[in-house]
Structures are given as structure tokens and as C-alpha cells.
Amino acid sequence: MPVFVRDSEKCVGCLICMFACGRAHLAVGLESSCIKVRSQGGISRGFSVFVCRGCEDPPCARSCPEDALIVRKSGGVLLKEDRCTGCSYCVKACILDAIGWSTIKNKPVICIQCGECAKSCHYRVLEYRRI
């Protein structure tokens, strides 16, 4: 479980983690980010952060008809892009809503368990734990 949401009540909604996720995917911007930050029905109620918790038995991988998501030993999954057909079953299978979608590639954006999001969060909403 490399990254987990420590306390979303402290989230200020700055989206710095989303941009960090984009950079971790070697991109600038939000298209290649798999994190989502949303207000809880209006900013006064605070924010929810949706980030991959690196499931040991990930439903996203189980839902993939092409075996494009390979389960990692340390948690989470790896995307084999050449196998992915863009069916988006994995997105629907993730109850955390922690899989992004690149409309340009028409493929999912999968967390690479790097922890860049947590490292960039000033408010320690996200925490990165090495296991």
C-alpha cells in the first residue's frame, strides 16, 4: 500500500498532486494524471482525493479481458499498453475511481506507485509508505 489518503479533510484542493502525477508519467498537465481531486458537493465542504491504494488483489486487473494489467508483487498493477484495447473495464472496476483516462491515447492512466503525489503534497494529505 504505497500511497494512502491520510486525511482528506486537510486537502485544500490545490491539485499539486495531480500535476505531480502527470510529471511522473513524463507529462506536463492533467491528461496523464490518474489522481482525481473533487469537492464534496461544493468547496465549503472540503475535498475528496481519489488515489490508487495498490490493492494486493486488484479488481482492475481481474476485469481486464486482455490481461493488459499485470499485478505487481508489491501491490498495484503495471499496464502493458500494447495489449490494452481501451475498453475501460478497469476504470469501472476501480471502486476508488483511481484510474485516469487519456482521451488522446484512449487508454487508462495507471498509478505507477512512485509516491510523487504524496511527496509534493504540502499538507500531508497523502502519505507514501515503502513496503
Binding site: V12, G13, C14, L15, I16, F19, S44, G46, F47, H122
Partner: peptide, 16 residues
């Protein structure tokens, strides 16, 4: 009661 930020700003100067 809460502090929030503009998009892409970590400062969170908005005091609620």
C-alpha cells in the same frame, strides 16, 4: 474552519 487553494497553487491562502 477550512483553508482552500486555487488550482495549481500550494499556498492555500483562501481562509474560510
Amino acid at each position: 474552519g477550512r483553508r482552500v487553494a486555487c488550482s495549481h497553487c500550494p499556498v492555500a491562502c483562501i481562509h474560510l
